[in-house]
Design a protein around this nucleic acid. Structure first.
Lengths: 312, 312
DNA sequence: TTGAAAGCGCTAACAC
DNA sequence: GTGTTAGCGCTTTCAA
């Protein structure tokens, strides 16, 4: 032992892994990591796995399902012991996920899940929170004296599962309150960036269509829309209430501060990591579907009576 | 070969790596990845290394040099073939970087470099751009009729090398224009978040100190400061010109849009990756220090005559 | 061209 | 407890 220390002996991970036929690596697949959303989750994942002696390989696919497939293949060939995935486009890789599960590779979905695959998952109830968010907009406009406010929705790309789910929440809330369910009130965006939000809202304003309230698939779309409104002198929230989703850093910086649904990112990450570890340690265990709580943060963009705190 | 395909033969990476004593993994060490800055660089790094059959292991240390050291150790023990690093705190791990270099592990610094280590690096000329940014503030205030504007600086934590460099750029620009070099004009912040910017500016306002211009180590500090000014009814840019650094997403969303120095993130990532690959393929090669160009994006936060485009 | 054997550095199983 | 040995799945070398 002394001699070993003296000679600066260091164990060889590859040899170690070879004999045990374990890689001690897990893979994470996310659709993007330019917004802070996924990084914040990933940090939690890393914390847990680092402490258990695992490495975390992170891949991102820029919302492309082909790139996602390549990433999965890469991870599989690297013999990761488990995969955490937030899917890029609904259904496109369902066959592959199933194949991985069938091969016995532990797979856990987080945030953007694929319900057609028999694997553990963790997310919030996007339907419910979209419903609540939409209702909040309706209540607010009514409090401002509008009995039948027009509420529009910027839906994300249709091949993102969540877009459809959140859109349902929106549509059902509108229906519940007997408001116009005109399909033209739902705008199917071509991306979920602030630039796309800007583009879509510009088109609307040019057509002379300005709703009383706008619920967006995410904050970026909402911020883009708000920019157009500001430039055109259309007051937010007095004339239009705006609401985002997945509270971003920018939501707190924008003026007015943007109302949004905040996911419990830390818990999301920790839970995802725990579920995967469970599956790795007990491959025969039943899949577990965890639904976490979220918070509807009302700020000035949706409600004139709300204070504009943002952050402190 | 037919039989192999038939039996779905897949090579075993660990065995392969064992014999060749190569891991085909490179490691990236960044101080944080919640802001989009590092993720955008990392995407480029991954693009190159993926195409060369390497995996990229990403670690972040939340600005802690102890955590950074742990990450480096982890990577070393994982036998990565090279390390790309943006350092957390000046000097704290210089000994370790040197040790790695001495051991023959290819190391390349990007963005936050350590000049005391004999390794390749890529960054912008932070001194120069801080100087330019400060001069821009001075020119702008003079155009507004102030012959001797007071220009403050929110410096980042002193143990971040860049803080010192950018502060020098600021100080020298102030000196060049014969303005007050009162040390009280430089505020040493305790972090680089918008919350810290908010805190520091609040303290100043409460002391009755409001400069004519403010140059911040990064956008987050600037955005925090701007929030205080807005809340206190102090007009930006009419009363105070504000300038950030490392153009963030929020810079484009804020009102007024925030002036900032934008680094060429894509080129930064590509160059860092290339330098590391060079070193891996040719370990005897001389270290190369690359300085890339940046852009000073003037927006309304600093200049009332600038349009408030932000993004489109 | 094809085949056999050694060895990468470790772990686990079996002896002593 | 301490020591020896086989073997993880591959690459490389040397022989046939």
């Amino acid at each position: 032992m002394e001699k070993a220390a003296e000679m600066r002996y260091k164990p060889n991970f590859m040899a170690k892994n070879l004999t045990k036929s374990r890689s001690k690596v897990i893979g994470v697949v996310v659709p993007e990591f330019v917004n802070s959303f996924f990084p914040r989750i990933i940090i939690q994942i890393q914390n847990l796995f680092d402490s258990k002696g695992y490495h975390v390989l992170i891949t991102q696919c820029d919302e492309s399902w082909e790139a996602e497939r390549r990433n999965l293949k890469l991870l599989e060939e690297s013999m990761v012991e488990g995969i955490l995935i937030s899917v890029a486009a609904k259904g496109k890789n369902t066959d592959y996920y199933r194949e991985l599960v069938a091969k016995g590779i532990p797979v856990v979905f987080f945030n953007r899940t694929d319900s057609e695959v028999d694997a553990s998952s963790v997310s919030i109830d996007d339907y419910k929170w979209s419903f609540f968010a939409t209702e909040h907009l309706i209540y607010t406009r009514r409090k401002l004296g509008q009995a039948s406010p027009s509420v529009m929705h910027f839906m994300g790309p249709q091949d993102i599962d969540l877009s459809v789910t959140r859109c349902r929440g929106y549509a059902d809330a509108v229906a519940k309150h007997h408001l116009s369910a005109n399909p033209a009130l739902t705008v199917k965006t071509d991306g979920i960036t602030k630039e796309e939000g800007y583009r879509q809202m510009s088109l609307l304003v040019e057509k002379g269509v300005v709703p009383d309230a706008l619920f967006c698939f995410n904050d970026q779309l909402a911020l883009g829309a708000m920019k157009v409104l500001r430039e055109r002198g259309i007051a937010v929230p007095d004339r239009v209430s705006v609401m985002g989703f997945s509270e971003s850093q920018s939501a707190l910086v924008s003026v007015p501060a943007l109302s949004s649904v905040a996911q419990p990112l830390e818990e999301l990450g920790k839970t995802a990591a725990r579920l995967l570890l469970d599956k790795i340690e007990n491959p025969a265990g039943k899949p577990e579907k965890v639904i976490l709580n979220a918070v509807l943060n009302v700020r000035r963009s949706s409600d004139p009576n709300s204070d504009d705190a943002g952050f402190r």
